[in-house]
Design a protein around this nucleic acid. Structure first.
Lengths: 254, 254
DNA sequence: AAATCTAGCTTTGTCGGACAAACCGATAAG
DNA sequence: CTTATCGGTTTGTCCGACAAAGCTAGATTT
């Protein structure tokens, strides 16, 4: 054993990670507010005393995490992570873990019911107006599965928004991203499927308007059970979320 | 206007992004299975025909997304995204959006009740054994708020696991990461708080064993209501998840 | 011969410098 | 006042290089 070096190797984290962590801390602690500029790469190089390549690797980490973005002119700025983008990562994880539609359905049922309960309790006039507008557009495309499916997904997003609970909004997003794209197949495959969907939405909105929680929950349950019946005509609930289906959700993520 | 270039600038995505997308596609489509090696940076340079710096930026993106990691010897390999790590990103987002404990509590109530219902229905012997082991350890540290809080968080993770629903497991994680770290403050601040917590866990486990859904839900509700009462002695539910508290959750994330 | 050591090759993390394209700002021209 | 032009910046990418750590395989020791 050679002369003991005596204290070394505490560094552990690579420099690019430290750069990312340092910037992240500033943002989380609120010293850099969303929308504020981070500075140019050159400035970061000067501040951290590392090479630009290293800074850039750190930036990529934060960018992927949704903490910073580049504005129109490509300058760096802090930003509020979009639920949507993060949820996409989670949806991807769910696919890789090969979850089944049964798991998806069960959890969505829980979360959508919670959404409607919150919406019945706390929906604002504006929330209700948005839902009403969505319903109107839905009624107009009742024969078009593709457009109707998109509006259905939006209806449920609006319902979560109307619950005024952002944690719930975020929690339902990953499952919803995988769940709702199937609507198109189902509505297209079941006669009167579109009409039933719009009818359910109508009753749900009505319940929210009347602050009638029981009715809201009842119709939300029916609505999802309808989905389930439709789905089971096409595939087994216990099959994993297929890669083929994944590609569908995937193409739409941009 | 000079001689029109006639078709250009479709490229849009920078090279490092394309590298990341290309590797991501291979993993999502299953052509590279979790655990399999991606190859060295040098090989990727050769395959994609770009510079190593560019490849490395792409790698950082995927690493942050949880799709690839470096094994003990720092070689790249595909991996299954850990819910935990992704949930950390979401928790961070929730903090930045300044959600309140009321939102957190409401959503956690929904998700924990769903967890216990699933656990009552589907918990395996192994799940029950894990919960029992946790309970035993909890009983032993009933006077130590820090350790008890950690075991409480674990109990709820195990309950979600016992529900055999991975979508639910994932959906509850972000809220749980913010919710449960407060347990320590609460248990420490309320006399008999530790004993009540362990008692509740005991009743919940008992209900799962007996497949008694009603009792399971009842005790889970009581357990969370206890948390709420304790919390309201310390702070207002309508205050946003404070930065100070955030730092607590933050330090523990590694 | 089996275990151990050592030297060399590989790979990663980091650095410095370079350049084209896009963008910004300000000035000059209509 | 609007439009065109010209530098100066900044980003995205490339090249080459090197120290530290890991791995491999031949050399050495027991």
């Amino acid at each position: 054993m050679a002369a003991t070096p005596l204290f070394r190797r505490i560094d552990v984290a690579p420099a690019y990670q430290k750069v990312a962590d340092a910037i992240e801390r500033e943002i989380i602690n609120g010293r850099i507010k969303p929308g504020e500029p981070i500075g140019t790469e050159q400035q970061l190089v000067a501040q951290f005393g590392v090479n630009r390549s290293t800074v850039r690797e750190g930036i990529r980490v934060l960018e992927e995490g949704g903490l910073i973005r580049r504005d129109s002119s490509r300058r760096l700025q802090a930003c509020l992570p979009r639920y949507n983008k993060l949820a996409t990562r989670l949806s991807r994880a769910l696919i890789l873990h090969e979850v089944t539609f049964r798991e998806l359905f069960e959890t969505s049922m829980t979360l959508e019911v919670a959404s409607v309960e919150g919406a019945v309790e706390r929906a604002s006039e504006e929330n209700i107006a948005e839902l009403a507008a969505n319903l109107e557009r839905s009624a107009a495309v009742v024969g078009n599965p593709a457009e109707l499916a998109e509006l259905d997904a939006e209806f449920h997003v609006l319902m979560a928004k109307a619950s005024q609970n952002r944690v719930l909004q975020l929690a339902r997003e990953p499952a919803a991203q995988l769940f709702f794209p199937t609507t198109e197949m189902i509505v297209g495959g079941v006669p009167e499927g579109g009409a039933r969907l719009v009818e359910a939405h109508g009753h749900i909105l009505d319940a929210i308007r009347r602050r009638d929680k029981e009715a809201g929950v009842l119709w939300t349950r029916r609505h999802l059970q309808d989905w389930r019946r439709g789905f089971e005509k096409i595939a087994s609930l216990d099959r994993s979320v297929e890669h083929t289906y994944m590609e569908h959700a995937y193409a739409a993520r941009q």
